[in-house]
Amino acid sequence: MEKVLFYHAGCPVCVSAEQDLLHLITDHQIEIVHLGEEKSRIQEAEDYGVQSVPAIVLANGNVLHLNFGASIKDLK
C-alpha cells in the first residue's frame, strides 16, 4: 500500500484527528474515508484490521487506533 487511509465517522474527535494527521503526514498521500457516509467501505476497513474509529492504516499495513470514538460494528 502506497497511501495512508484514515477512517472516521465524522464525530468531533475524528475531525480533529483528521486535521492533525493532515499536518503531520507529508510523505504519503492520505485518503480520508468517512464511514458514516461511505458505509460500503466498512468491510474494507475491517479487512485492514480496523476495529474502531478514528483509525489510520499506515502504508506498511499497520493499523493505529487513535481514540475509541465508535466501534466499527456500531457503524454497520
Rank of each mutant, 00 (worst) to 15 (best):
C14G: 15
V63G: 01
G10L: 09
C14L: 11
L35D: 01
I56V: 15
V13D: 15
Q29K: 14
P12N: 13
M1F: 10
K73D: 13
M1P: 13
G49E: 02
Y48N: 05
G69K: 05
L64T: 06
A45W: 01
R41S: 03
S52N: 14
I25W: 11
R41D: 03
E46C: 04
Y48V: 03
H28K: 10
A55I: 10
A70F: 08
V53P: 06
H34F: 00
E37Q: 13
I56R: 04
E46Y: 00
I32F: 00
K39T: 12
K76L: 07
I25G: 08
L58I: 01
R41I: 06
I72T: 05
E31F: 03
A9G: 15
N67P: 00
I72C: 04
Y7H: 12
V53T: 11
D20N: 08
D74Q: 11
E31N: 05
P12D: 09
E18V: 12
L5S: 07
K73P: 00
Q29M: 09
A17Y: 11
V15D: 12
P54Y: 02
V4P: 06
I72K: 05
V57C: 01
A70E: 08
E18D: 11
V63N: 04
E31T: 05
P12E: 11
G36E: 08
H34E: 08
K76T: 10
E2W: 00
T26G: 11
G49A: 01
V33Y: 03
L64Y: 09
H65K: 09
L22D: 05
M1C: 09
N67A: 14
E44C: 03
L66I: 15
I56M: 07
L35V: 05
N67Y: 15
N60Y: 03
Y7L: 07
L35H: 02
E2L: 07
E44M: 05
N60Q: 05
E18H: 14
A55F: 06
L5T: 07
C14F: 07
H28S: 00
G10Q: 11
F68I: 12
L5G: 03
L22K: 15
S52L: 06
H8I: 14
L21H: 09
V15H: 07
K76Q: 12
V50M: 03
Y7K: 13
H34G: 01
E46W: 00
L22N: 10
H65S: 08
F6R: 13
E18P: 05
Y7S: 07
V15Y: 07
A45T: 01
L58E: 05
V4I: 14
G36Y: 07
G49M: 01
E46T: 08
I25V: 15
A70S: 13
G10Y: 07
E38F: 03
Q43F: 02
E46M: 10
V53S: 10
